[in-house]
């Protein structure tokens, strides 16, 4: 079937099977091979692109689902020829090794910063939870996203949910429960 898709601001007319995934159309029809496929089941995030401002896995989305929407891929980040701040910070912070996860990481991070310009480190890690990297241990990636948000120092950690739960909140009527499995 014929599809009109808007990718990186350009309208493309492509011919694809109805069950073609967005990633297939991007890579095979448009030659936008920056979007990578690492698992094919929406677990590794290498295929992440932004659709209407939200990060999505293009390997578990059909091309037809993107009809009428704005798709942004890694190739669209430096469309003017100059690296986006986020890309620049990935370079400076040593956030790139083999680089196969990088486009997806960038797009998840971009979507985060579009919605939340000053994310905490926990926000960053949550936003990148669906992007696996086997090389870096994530530290430099988190640092790069933080730096791209203009926060050069370690952001204040919000207490984790667990700490929040264990804190002695005064809630009328509900006693906190502590599980104690006995001593050693």
């Amino acid at each position: 079937m014929e599809l009109l898709l808007t990718v990186n601001g350009t309208v493309w007319e492509v011919s694809a099977r109805p069950t073609a995934r967005l990633i297939d159309v991007l890579r095979d029809q448009m030659g936008l091979s920056g979007t990578k496929e690492g698992c094919g089941e929406g677990e590794c995030g290498a295929c992440t692109v932004i659709v209407d401002g939200k990060a999505v896995n293009s390997c578990v989305m059909l091309a037809v689902q993107a009809l009428g929407k704005e798709v942004l891929t890694v190739e669209g980040l430096a469309a003017s020829g100059e690296l986006d701040t986020l890309q620049q910070k990935f370079v400076e912070q040593g956030a790139v090794q083999c680089g196969f996860c990088t486009p997806g990481m960038l797009m998840s991070a971009k979507a985060l910063l579009m919605a939340n310009p000053l994310p905490s480190d926990q926000d960053i890690r949550t936003a990148l939870a669906g992007n696996l990297c086997r090389c870096t241990g994530y530290k430099n990636i988190v640092a790069a996203v933080r730096a791209a948000s203009g926060q050069e120092t370690v952001a204040m950690e919000v207490p984790s949910e667990k700490e929040e739960l264990l804190a002695d909140l005064a809630v009328p009527g509900l006693a906190p429960a502590k599980l104690d499995e006995g001593g050693e």
Binding site: R27, S33, K36, E75, V96, G99, F100
Partner: peptide, 21 residues
């Protein structure tokens, strides 16, 4: 000193052609 991988610019722009590409 510290340096990025040599092909970092191609990696962050998505232009690097990997084996699977």
């Amino acid at each position: 000193k510290s340096y990025p991988v040599h092909d970092v610019a191609q990696k962050v722009t998505g232009e690097l052609v990997y084996g699977s590409d």
